[in-house]
Design a protein around this nucleic acid. Structure first.
Lengths: 340, 340
DNA sequence: TTGTAGGCGTTATCAG
DNA sequence: CTGATAACGCCTACAA
């Protein structure tokens, strides 16, 4: 790569001043046609392109954008969330930059640094890893951010979420109300806020219904189709045949269904399953998964509203906490045993 | 919103000079411990972060991330591609920033500007809209970039893709070889390179097999589950009952299957369908879609290899063009009529 | 150990 | 119409 030619070079070659060259660059009308032509000529032959960095340094006119950090781009939960973020951001005339961390806090920190250094308006954190040090970091430097789909115990921050504990309880109660007593739980071993709360909700619901918790019915594997598949396999290997499963997210649920299908186990006749998230694919007839809806799109929208609210507030801003309601989307994966 | 604090502010507050502040910023050892401590203190409470734009202007050193621009984050094709990009980028120790354009060239330009202004190492363009003016723009300013899953006729650029024309032909030939003669094509009206080439491939395959092209069998709707569903509906409304469909991508195919399921039409007994992309969900038993594989992950990896190759090349770099092979993934959605 | 001053490549103001 | 010149926010010899 040969040395970059700059505006000064153009000025020297043409014999005009930097200021004049700058003018033709910006299409300023106050330039004689002949000079404009000459300068343009040299610009062309020399392949000169104004340096955007220098330009934006002086113009301070960077297009506004906010950073959205998610932990798994291949989970539709996050892409549906992203859609909501983008929609609201677009209304406010700003872009959104998405960063994917694979549930890795180091990666997360890397992206936070990039976002901050590049003057993002603020950060939307949809990386619900528990005890995430990055949260207190952001809090400490007073950088605007909002937590999505989680909260954190001892730090006062903006947040938008559903109540995972309650929602999980609701899901398990739904199974119980439909006559299920042996209920397994598939979740992830990753220390993610939502997963942990759902596990607690699962246990709480069982307790409340005097159902003994059987640790062998709690299977952990990664949050993915593969993880769900393997969880189901693990369960069966243990010779456990509960009548129902509460999967901590839809991907896990669908992966499990996949295993049952392979084993010629019918859902819901032989085994019932309820998911969590209500990602789009769960709704198709071929899958038809009963699940707990998380208002992903809305959470995305609201998160940017909160963020911009904070940014626009000049005097002592008080963090906004918003908990949305979830509900069960009844489809065909849960057997109503009382109807038998 | 309070004014952005800069290095000068820190200098003023601490009483030290800008130079000294800069030194502690860069961990220069020649600073008295007590001074360093004081300055760090103020930096922390004030939330100051050095402006990357100014910094890179003087250092002439780009930051360490690449931009990936995709057109639809909710299509797993793109998220699987992203995973490949991230994997290779991580090996090279750099981050990836993803931007989603919704197939909108204006949005795309907005993100390109953001990426350039923030000194990304380069841009990966997975936005296959035809006649995209942004491509020649990037070419003109000599910004490093590589086209993913497309090429462009008259501009010499880096690119990584499969041959969509050939692949589509292969798909349709596969249907024909299995005894299908009435074959519909579901695609998108958006002027996207891959869609157009696949339509051409579809027509070419029919021609080569002396099958008359029936325009009524070519249905256009958006590339999504919904679009596929509606395309199938449109087809049936027209009272058209081909024996097979070539869907321009898996989302469309799955959406169509959804409609058939609802109408109690069996796949593949009543109607066969072949997709394109081979996104993960197509592989599960419940869907079991026969489709054309695009090596998404590999394309992602290779794209960053190419990009970095260009960046590291000092002397006249010649654009790298890489066409990967695709193949048919046989599953259960195509009826082998000759076997009947 | 700390500070002064001169860039980095543009834009923008204001005389000439 | 043109051209000095002061920013923009930060880095870095070179002095002190």
């Amino acid at each position: 790569m040969k040395k970059k030619v700059n505006i000064k070079d153009i000025a020297n070659v043409t014999g005009f001043s930097i200021a004049t060259v700058s003018k033709v660059l910006r299409n300023d009308p106050y330039v004689k046609d002949s000079t404009r032509k000459k300068i343009l000529e040299v610009i062309k032959t020399t392949g000169f392109v104004p340096d955007e960095v220098a330009r934006s340094l002086v113009m301070k006119k960077t297009t506004n954008f906010i950073g959205l950090i998610i932990s798994d781009i291949s989970n539709p939960f996050f892409s549906e969330l992203t859609l909501g973020v983008e929609a609201e951001a677009k209304k406010r005339n700003c872009g959104v930059i998405v960063c994917n961390t694979h549930y890795d806090e180091k990666e997360e920190r890397k992206y936070i640094d990039i976002l901050i250094r590049n003057r993002s308006l603020g950060i939307l954190l949809a990386t619900p890893t528990i005890n995430d040090p990055n949260i207190s970091f952001l809090k400490n430097i007073h950088y605007p951010f909002v937590l999505i789909t989680r909260k954190v115990e001892n730090i006062d921050t903006n947040l938008i979420s559903v109540d995972h504990f309650k929602s999980a309880k609701m899901a398990v109660n739904y199974l119980i109300q439909n006559g299920h007593k042996e209920i397994a739980h598939f979740t992830s071993p990753i220390k993610v806020y939502g997963f942990i709360k759902r596990l607690e909700g699962y246990k709480s619901a069982l307790n409340a219904n005097n159902i003994k918790i059987d640790e062998k019915l709690i299977i952990m594997n990664e949050s993915s189709l593969k993880g769900g598949y393997e969880s189901a396999e693990t369960l069966f290997r243990k010779n456990k045949r509960p009548t129902a499963i509460f999967a901590s997210d839809d991907l896990i649920a669908i992966g499990a269904m996949e295993y049952f299908k392979k084993m010629s186990y019918k859902v819901p006749e032989d085994i019932s399953i309820i998911g969590y998230d209500n990602i789009a694919i769960s709704g198709i007839y071929l899958i038809n998964l009963t699940t707990v809806n998380q208002p992903k799109y809305e959470m995305g929208e609201i998160s940017v509203k909160i963020l911009l609210e904070q940014i626009e507030t000049t005097t002592n801003f008080k963090p906004i906490k918003c908990i949305l309601k979830s509900h069960i989307v009844e489809r065909g994966s849960v057997l109503k045993r009382y109807d038998l």
